[in-house]
Every structure is written in structure tokens, then in C-alpha cells.
């Protein structure tokens, strides 16, 4: 499953090299207008509390500095006690773009936030199970901040669409509302900040 998704994401990148050969025809084709609903990128990631594997699509706005992604993640039962499907929404802002080589950009800083909903939680409460405000926290919905970075390879445009494409690998450090609450309840050093961090690694293809 994971390999398949990875292959799907990487294929457009490989196609790019083939497309560069007939350079003149590529330049001759005018870029097809982009449908408003068409996502600007696909992504695949692991970790970050959003799934062992999570695949998604998203939109880049504000000259690619602002992105919003929707992901669907999967956690096998053997790791969580029940099979989880995780739906997530991420919003990220990347203010800086460093051109480190003709075709390579580095986005040193991405800040953002996510909200996720896990379907399949064993005991997330049913109607009438608890008195009002028995637990202040949700058992299936998490929110948290993200901080990350990215390396982007600028692939030549695909002949058929003329759209510029980018292939990126990214990392994100994150945490969630429950870990944050744990951290701020122990400011004498009982819980180190590093202990509440999670890591996500992913690839993203803009097309």
C-alpha cells in the first residue's frame, strides 16, 4: 500500500524527464487553464499522529506560501489496539524560500496547525455515558501546532499541461493539545519539552 502510493507520487517526477526531450513542442503548447477545484499537490506522509501512512491533497495559496492539505491516514490495529482511520486538515505557512541550486529550493521554516479526527477509537464515549464535562478533552479529535521544513526539486513542466511541478520532501515536528496540557502542568521540569514532540516525514508533489 505504502509503496504503491509512493510510486504514484513519484511517477509524475519521472515523467518529467521524458517530457523535457521534445523541448520545442512543450513550449508551443499553451498552459491549460486550471480548474478551480483541482488540487495543486498530492502528498504522502508517515507519523505526526496522523497515521502510519496518510495520503492527501491540498491547495497552495498566496504565492505558494500558504498551503492547506487534507489527509486520510491509517493506523493498523496492532499499533493502536483498534484500526484507526484518521482524517486531518493542515494549514501551513512557509515565509522563506531559499534557492540553493538552479533546480533546488529549501523552505527552511514551515509553521502551521492541524486538526485530526480518528475514527475507530474503542472508547470515545457514547450518548449518556458520562455526566456533562466529565472529561474536558475529546478522545477522538486532536489539534496541535506544526513546525517543519522542506526541500523542493523543481521539475520541468509536464508537456500536456504546462503547469510547473515540484517534488518535495518534508519533515514536521508537532504535538497535540493533550501533550501540551501535560507539559504546561509540569513547569518544574517534570516533563521535558522533547518528550511531547512528534515527527512526521512526507513527500509532496505539486503538479
Amino acid at each position: 500500500m505504502k509503496r504503491f502510493l509512493l510510486a504514484v507520487l513519484l511517477l509524475p517526477g519521472l515523467g518529467a524527464h521524458a517530457a523535457t526531450l521534445p523541448d520545442t513542442s512543450a513550449a508551443a503548447v499553451p498552459p491549460a487553464p486550471r480548474k478551480w477545484w483541482r488540487p495543486t499537490h498530492l502528498l504522502l506522509q508517515t507519523g505526526g499522529g496522523l497515521g502510519q501512512v496518510a495520503a492527501g491533497a491540498g491547495y497552495a495559496l498566496a504565492k505558494n506560501r500558504l498551503e492547506t492539505d487534507v489527509l486520510l491516514g491509517y493506523v493498523p490495529r496492532k499499533y493502536a489496539g483498534s484500526t484507526l482511520s484518521v482524517a486531518s486538515l493542515k494549514v501551513m505557512y512557509s515565509p522563506y524560500r531559499l534557492q540553493v541550486a538552479p533546480k533546488v529550493q529549501v523552505l527552511p521554516l514551515t509553521v502551521g496547525a492541524y486538526v485530526s479526527y480518528a475514527h475507530g477509537i474503542i472508547n470515545d464515549g457514547v450518548r449518556g455515558q458520562y455526566p456533562r464535562d466529565y472529561y474536558w478533552f475529546s478522545r477522538n479529535t486532536r489539534v496541535g501546532p506544526l513546525l517543519g521544513g522542506r526541500v523542493t526539486y523543481l521539475a520541468p513542466p509536464l508537456a500536456a499541461t504546462g503547469q510547473p511541478r515540484r517534488l518535495s520532501a518534508y519533515y514536521e515536528l508537532g504535538t497535540n493539545d493533550l501533550y501540551i496540557a501535560s507539559f504546561f502542568g509540569n513547569l518544574k521540569g517534570g516533563l521535558g519539552f522533547g518528550k511531547i514532540l512528534t515527527l512526521a516525514l512526507g513527500v509532496k508533489a505539486d503538479f
Partner: peptide, 14 residues
């Protein structure tokens, strides 16, 4: 350390 941090879900009990 990275593997430890690669959490699939807060319910991930690895």
C-alpha cells in the same frame, strides 16, 4: 529518537 517520535496516532502504543 526519530523512530520514537514517528507517532502514528496518540493512541499508538508502540
Amino acid at each position: 529518537a526519530g523512530c520514537d517520535m514517528l507517532e502514528f496516532s496518540p493512541s499508538d502504543h508502540r
